[in-house]
Design a protein around this nucleic acid. Structure first.
Lengths: 367, 367
DNA sequence: CCTCGTTTTTGGATTGATCCAAATCTGTTG
DNA sequence: CAACAGATTTGGATCAATCCAAAAACGAGG
């Protein structure tokens, strides 16, 4: 692979060896240091020199060696990003948001999919330390030991938690107010006349699930519906939604509305209702969370709490940039406000004098 | 940040400076070189020495410095991955497949979302060169200059193209046989009695679109349906599918089936049919491509050409590993065979003596 | 022309690992 | 016990940048 040096190790003579600062310096008639300053856009160098050096860089086809730079400098302009399920479209959108910000900032990111395994996550984080990334964006895997946070502090590694969080404040965090989101959903349903409202999903002990449950309980209490409040724990997949609703609808009196941990579940619930010969939205109102693209497409179109994954990704990345620029600044929590996207999956409870006026909502792609 | 050196630069004295190979060597009573060999799992070191060194590594809390290693060694155990739309669930699944293989191989990857911009892609690739990644997984952005391939050869940078390809063989490539997939779809529809089959979508000039069109044309010709063959070019979004079918259904005679460039389009088409008061599958058969998770959920469940994104990701990553291990080996093309996943969105054309026996298919999550 | 304060430029030290040829340590064997 | 092969270990050179204190160049004012 590496060619045997022909006679001497004179930098001029090496065949296709890589071009270094030294070579540029010789070509432009300046010192290594000056070239280095030009590469880093330092204001110290005179314009004429800068132009000349840049010409030499282009002429010799120089390639900056980030490894060498990293060895001496404190920053690497790299970041580590950990999500637990990249196949979930929610995270796809979030990563797109992260990427857009990092691109503007000349940063580049390592991505890992922890599959909700703390061990796998830990291994990746250690690798990131070896790579000397400037910081981390972390959606902590289910069951992550809160001690991880102090470990990262020991490592002197900036970390922005995203969506979920472990440990206790202060820490950097970017997410959506899931609690508020669920409250909005309950309020909406109550306004439509619903009372027997079930919250579906969320086995996990992590913060994002807890916040949803808290929002549900509080909203139900605020409407004096403590007696009918009901949380069904379990997985948060399409299949789980499909199955859960089968059981739910056999009860009597049966719920008139379900709020789901995420949209995938909600879509599963709607399918489950159809399987039972029921009309989603009419026979049982359904609200999802996230407002993924598919929500607008379902029949009927799904009412969902929009959590704006792309924006969360952007905010998280921006917060990381701030923290890297100012490592000792006060920790920040950027919590976006969700918005209830009302579509057609929640009909009002028919009152005696008012019959269901619309048997099937219109198909639409709007909103 | 970096503390002022108190008296001497003796490595023992520096306060919280990082632990280096030198320190480990001193602690374990061996040389730097030996420690380095232990770190790289070399078979050269004696077991007793290895054990002793590993103990020292643990005792001193040593952190491997990948930047320093990269400076001297030829491999970095990093890879660059470029996709053009990470928010698309197809790519999410693909990236998950890539990640699973890389994790096993002790590799870590940079991810970029090109948003189908060749400029953005180029910038990322140059950055990857600076990072000295061992190789690339590239889903080339629409409109990428085929000269990029020779550029990468000049750079001496292994590159596996994924899904789409530019340039002419030989090159490394991992994908699915889109041509065959469309042929399967046409065959299926023809078997059900369809003749006026339209292919929908694909404005782009890249290989994946061309392969689909080729498959369509050839299958139609094979069934002597040249006279009715019809490709409608355009975007490949939900919206595009929704809009296109509105126009299509106003024609007379109207098509009895549409094959879509991807599932998102197909779902849009089904929604468009509903908007027109038509029953998807009955009044017009619909076939998608990709078989994303949502396909099984739609009403009716979408028949789709499964392209196995996770498997493509795995194959692409494995191919990259092979290429890195053997840079001069023969280029490989790993082309997976798609499978037509038949569900309920394609009813047979009713023959005079046989009326439509089922007005609405069953909701199901199966398959 | 000399001084003084900026603005630019510079060379040597440093960063932390790997490479590689040579040295050293084993254990056989004649 | 010397010779030798094989298994281990080693030190110096090297990779390609940044840091930093000091030198050089420059321009203005006396």
């Amino acid at each position: 692979m590496a060619r045997f040096p022909e006679t001497s190790s004179s930098s001029r003579e090496r065949a296709r060896q890589s071009v270094t600062l030294q070579d540029i310096a010789a070509h432009a008639g300046v010192s290594r240091s000056t070239v280095s300053l030009v590469l880093r856009d330092s204001p110290l160098v005179a314009d004429a020199t800068r132009t000349r050096v840049q010409a030499s860089i282009k002429a010799l086809g120089y390639v900056y060696n980030r490894g060498a730079a990293a060895l001496r400098a404190s920053r690497t302009f790299t970041l580590g990003v950990v999500v637990y399920d990249i196949a979930n479209p929610f995270f796809g959108a979030m990563v797109a948001g992260i990427d857009s910000v990092l691109h503007r900032e000349n940063y580049v990111s390592f991505l890992a999919n922890s599959e909700d395994s703390p061990e796998r996550q830990q291994r990746f984080l250690e690798r990131m330390r070896e790579q000397r990334v400037d910081g981390l964006l972390l959606c902590p895997a289910e069951g992550t030991d809160p001690a991880l946070l102090t470990q990262l502090v020991d490592w002197n590694m900036p970390c922005v938690q995203v969506l979920r969080h472990i440990g206790t404040p202060p820490f950097d965090y970017a997410s959506t107010d899931f609690e508020l989101g669920v409250r909005q959903a309950v309020d909406h349903l109550v306004t439509l006349g619903h009372r027997r409202i079930v919250f579906l999903g969320g086995d996990a002990r992590h913060s994002a699930t807890q916040a949803r449950h808290r929002g549900y309980h509080e909203a139900m209490r605020a409407h004096s519906l403590d007696d009918v409040h009901r949380v069904i724990r379990g997985a948060v997949t399409r299949r789980a939604g499909f199955d859960a609703v089968q059981h739910l609808m056999q009860e009597s009196p049966r719920p008139t509305a379900v709020i789901c941990h995420n949209d995938l579940m909600a879509l599963g619930v709607m399918l489950g209702l159809q399987r039972l010969g029921l009309v989603p939205g009419e026979d049982c109102a359904v609200v999802g969370t996230d407002d993924i693209e598919e929500a607008a497409l379902s029949m009927p179109a799904l009412t969902s709490v929009a959590t704006h994954p792309y924006a969360i990704g952007e905010e998280a990345a921006r917060l990381a940039m701030r923290r890297i620029a100012n490592p000792d600044g006060a920790r920040e929590q950027v919590v976006l406000t969700p918005r209830l996207q009302v579509r057609h999956s929640c009909a009002p409870i028919p009152t005696p004098e008012k019959t269901s006026y619309r048997r099937y909502p219109h198909a639409t792609l709007d909103a």
